[in-house]
Nucleic acid binder design. Structure first.
Lengths: 213, 213
DNA sequence: ATCTGTGAAGCACTTCACAGCG
DNA sequence: CGCTGTGAAGTGCTTCACAGAT
């Protein structure tokens, strides 16, 4: 069966909510309660039940879902029960912030290699990682493959970097560049571009009075 | 007429592609060419035409779209022809990176106020901005309103901050917190959470051989 | 001849509503 | 009796295909 991508995108939200419930010692949760936590609204309850039904029957009728069990299932489905190695390309201001981000490790994501094209940066140590030259990307990743590539280079070089990562067999890319980069079928890419988000939100703000200088 | 949100989300992509074409001196572009730039594929051409048709008739049959004219229209539709004031809440590692991000200003987005709850940070100057205490948020924003709120606090405090921003009349929020924050109807919120993106991409990676330690 | 603008058809996701089980 | 799991109905977005403009 082909599972819709929107469903996959929601699973991490469910997992996160369940982790919160588990931390608070909760043992059982209904789809209504879970919807309240995830969407702030009970209306998503049927959607949660249907989403989960793609993968199995995890609940008990009349009772709800066992929190620990369901969380464990989701982790396994999403592959969150493993560690994932990532390669960062681009160690400028943005790249350094990504290297220093504390949110990855607790979730099993580790930046194992970092590359930059600036000779002044190559060879230096940032957050415990020796920066290698982007030209060596294919050689290094051949010897030490990663699961995910993180692109944090200027827009102009983004497509070149994406292509190189794909050539190395990387099939999941997190793209921080404000680029229009493309990947072949079979490769996952998610864009993390705050400006795009802002630019679509402002559409809905136009009606507001112009903010004072 | 009610315009689908997915359409609004695509407009900034079109605008960005057009800006690139304009910079290269291109005067006219067809929907096919634009689709090639935006999606890396001509299959989106009909979608681009339909999206644009929600707002007017900007093309010339047999010829295509005037690049400058269409870009101007999109800017106006999205409100990109204005400047937008933003307030940042949370000046930790992540908040500092956001304050230092050079990608906002060229697109008309400026962080005008920054808040933190840590007394050691309040009063210090970061990237030319004096940090104010989060307790003063409502007072400060009453005197100097902003259009957009940026949330970069720990997950536990995110909902409280979101609520405060909404009370101040902020109706667009960029949420960097790994939270399940909710906003009332009529308020826009976009989540920028790299971990969520990673966690859904790993679903598709599970089939790959386990990466060596 | 070419490319837009757009009704209509097609497809995919969401929501309903209820049978069935604990 | 409560709540899940799920076909079926509903809704909304995407894609098609062509009339019409240049």
């Amino acid at each position: 069966m082909e599972i819709p991508e929107v469903v996959i995108d929601r699973l991490p939200l469910y997992a996160r909510a369940l982790a919160g419930l588990e931390a608070r010692g909760r043992e059982v949760v209904s789809s209504q309660e879970l919807a309240q936590h995830v969407f702030g609204d009970i209306k998503g309850a049927a959607q949660i039940r249907k989403d989960l039904s793609y993968f199995g029957r995890f609940g008990k009728q009349g009772r709800g879902y066992n929190v620990r069990r369901l969380l464990e299932e989701l982790r396994q489905i999403l592959g969150l029960d493993r560690h994932w190695r990532m390669a960062l390309v681009g160690v400028g201001r943005l790249g350094r912030a990504i290297l220093g981000y504390e949110g990855f490790a607790p979730q099993g994501f580790r930046i194992a290699e970092a590359f930059d094209a600036d000779p002044a940066v190559v060879g230096t140590r940032v957050d415990g990682l020796v920066i290698k030259h982007t030209d060596e990307l294919e050689k290094v990743l051949a010897a030490s493959p990663v699961d995910v590539g993180i692109v944090a280079v200027p827009a102009e070089s983004a497509q070149k970097v994406i292509d190189a990562l794909v050539r190395c067999g990387v099939s999941a890319i997190l793209d921080y560049a404000p680029s229009a980069g493309h990947v072949p079928r079979g490769v996952q890419m998610k864009r993390i571009d705050p400006v795009l988000s802002l630019q679509s939100m402002t559409y809905y703000l136009k009606a507001r009075p112009l903010s004072p200088k």
